[in-house]
Design a protein around this nucleic acid. Sequence first.
DNA 1: CGCCCTGTTGGGGA
DNA 2: ATCCCCAACAGGGC
Length: 279
Amino acid sequence: MPELPEVETIRRQLAPLVEGRVLREVRIDDSRWSRPLAPAELQDALTGRRVDRLSRRGKYFVWELQDDVFLAQHLRMTGTLLYDADPATPHVHVRIALDDGHRISISDPRRFGTGELLLGEDARAAFFAARLGIEPLDGALDGPAMRAIVRDRRAPIKAVLLDQRRIAGVGNIYADEALHRAGIHPLRPARQLTAAQCERLSTGVREALQAGLDAGGATIDDFRHVDGVYGGFQNEFLVHRRRGEPCPACGREIVKFVAAGRGTYACETCQPKPRRPRT
DNA sequence: CGCCCTGTTGGGGA
DNA sequence: ATCCCCAACAGGGC
């Protein structure tokens, strides 16, 4: 469910509610969530600590706790982070009681979500350095940066966009959206992109993510805010393809295929298929 | 009712 | 470097 705009939206809503609060009680009912630690170990490490800041890196929430203790939390496919959730909410595997009486619940039907404890600045830096590349909304993702990222890579451009070690936070839906905005076919070998295409793609990635943020992270159909309310839609490529409607730019049919192992949508009029197999 | 397929993610093994 | 499969579950098509 959550891609970068959704994660950032949740972070912005939750940060003022948790920063400065102490985690009074932590209950983890899922041994998968806290691997490699046992749930009891993670509970003990978190309990009683003050939240200095709630930040984000790629699609990770970073709970910055006192004494340089960090929790890198990922919601993966189906995780939701709820504030004062309905007690009947299903699939809640992690519950946190704050010192002001409010509660945090993490609901995650598929249980892919993770929470990793990182002790100290160095551990945090190493964790993200091994996994994440450039932050797409920090201003550094321009045409030349994109060109350096695609250079020498013969993998399809969509696979490169989804590689978190290159660009942090672009998921399946926003990758399709960015490629449509840039007029680039998802299967085009990355190294074939011209300087002009790299420029358009860097803009497409930034604008697609920003549009998601402007919509309050409401671009995915079952996205819910921290208060449990469902979000709405915006009139973008990704919305049209979900509805089975034609391309909003040219009116031609949107086609579906597999790229980088994921379901992929494109308009092959706006995004011409690659013809040259190798370069 | 049951079976099969799909999926917003990322890690590990081939 | 790249591809495939997997984690666990819900929902839709047939």
